[in-house]
Amino acid sequence: MIEEPYRWVEAISNRREYIEHQLATGSPIAALTYNDGILFLTLSRERQKIFEIYDRIAMGVIGHPGDIERLRMAAIEVASTEGFTRSTSDVSLRRLATYSLSPALKTAFEQVYGAPYLARMLFAELGRKNERNLFIRIDYDGSIHTNGGSHLRTFEDFGVISGTTASTNAMEKFLRTHNFADGDLANALSVALDTWTVGNLTLGEEPREELPAPDQIAKHRAEQLANFVIEAAVLEQSARLPITYRVLGNAELEPFQRQN
């Protein structure tokens, strides 16, 4: 059926529709810069969605658990092997994403007789001295979206993923109107929770111009916190060891979980 080019395009577009449908209910994940590093946050019922990849790299992911596991392991293996054979400072998210993950995802996506990866990933890398933090979103088809770095584009201090484009756009729009990069962790947690709420509110919607009103966000946030649990981790500049990843514990999250 796919010998003719038109059929192939049709097959690809069908599977894109299928995957988008599968991912559409995914809980949003926000990653943002604060004064001591990067915060990852999402709300979930049970399954872990935020993972450590290497000393300065973390990942948040939505999709099928089996596919998530394979991609996570692949990322860890590539980073660890490079860190061992060269040096830990040679491990870079940009190279991991563009040379390892993206081609593999694209191949799996376009080989229409095989199964594609059902996953959408958000990676962040803690910047070294004088470097900005890097946020990269990689989709099931291998397409990459970064937070800037080319000329004529300003760097953004965040990255988000969500089940739908409308929700992703809304979260990005929300973050563009808020300050958090120079604030402390508590402020970042609060902004990230609101961002998640905006993403969750707009999941099922058509793309639209205006964001949900602040009181609507506050109300929805309180409702969701009654049903879901906050999952959060940080990459910390002030970490004593080269390993900068740390999962936030109950003591740090409870005020936010209970406050509503």
Binding site: A74, V78, S80, F84, T85, A104, Q111, G114
Partner: peptide, 28 residues
């Protein structure tokens, strides 16, 4: 780097240890 996905399961129940991974890739 990352293998294109094949049909067979890649993870055994016993997690591979890092030295074995290096050996498989010829780094050890």
């Amino acid at each position: 780097m990352m293998e294109a996905r094949a049909g067979e399961p890649q993870r055994t129940p016993m997690p591979e240890d890092f030295a074995a991974l290096l050996r498989r890739q010829g780094h050890f």
